[in-house]
């Protein structure tokens, strides 16, 4: 019974949603079920918050390695929770929005969380450079091809590319670096991407069928198919 009920729900809902694609009056069902999912997700936030508290309080209590970081995590969590729940510093009364300008919640969000997130995101620039350095080493034929393609695209996306090859006559304009870059992006690159997309599409259908038919059950914590 513990396995049968979720499998039956998956089968019925999956089949109904597939059929709804072909039945116009039922086309909004997809949106309705997404709404149900969102409602369930709201309750899951309590699970998440509870787990966070439990894990970090345990860490503090048992003085596990790096327990000091848990103080920061718990403080951040509790301060934001209190600021949001009790609307600390809100310009109006309790009825005003939690993210009203001037509220503590919004101030911490704007002046602490946002800059920290931007800092993390900005790391990407350095990582792109280091990853490119590793990827573009001409170790073998494929890597050399990648290096050449990347070089053309990098050059083609800058005014320098046009400056270098702008003199090439119109009849051979494909050889101008910006055009060559565009061709690489629109032809070989797009063809490759579409092949992957078709594969993903088939994979999704296959996986969905496995789930609907109950062949794939690992998401229920059942390892035996």
């Amino acid at each position: 019974m513990r396995r049968f009920v979720p499998l039956a729900i998956t089968f019925i809902v999956g089949t109904v949603l597939i059929l709804s694609v072909f039945i116009p009056p039922a086309q909004d069902l997809n949106r309705t079920f997404t709404l149900y999912f969102d409602i369930i997700a709201v309750f899951a936030f309590f699970l998440g918050g509870g787990n966070l508290l439990r894990v970090h309080i345990n860490k503090l209590r048992m003085k596990k390695r790096d327990w000091q970081f848990s103080i920061v995590t718990l403080s951040g969590f509790l301060i934001m929770l209190a600021a949001g729940l009790f609307k600390i510093g809100n310009p109006g009364d309790i009825a005003t929005a939690v993210d009203a300008e001037g509220s503590m919640f919004q101030t911490v969000f704007n002046y602490v969380l946002n800059p920290l997130q931007s800092t993390m995101y900005s790391l990407l620039a350095f990582f792109v450079a280091s990853a490119s350095y590793r990827a573009f080493r001409a170790k073998n034929r494929e890597a050399t091809l990648l290096l050449i393609a990347a070089f053309i695209i990098l050059l083609g996306r800058t005014p320098f590319g046009l400056m270098l090859t702008g003199w090439i006559p119109e009849s051979f304009s494909i050889l101008q670096v910006p055009n060559l870059a565009m061709w690489i992006m629109n032809s070989p690159n797009l063809a490759g991407q579409r092949a992957i997309i078709i594969g993903i599409g088939l994979g999704v259908i296959s996986m969905s069928l496995r789930l609907i038919l109950g062949v794939e059950r690992s998401y229920l914590g059942d390892d035996n198919a």
């Binding site: 699970l47 998440g48 787990n51 966070l52 894990v55 969380l113 920290l116 997130q117 993390m120 995101y121």
Partner: peptide, 8 residues
């Protein structure tokens, strides 16, 4: 659970 903020 860690957080639902991407970069955090």
């Amino acid at each position: 659970f860690v957080t639902q903020s991407q970069f955090a």
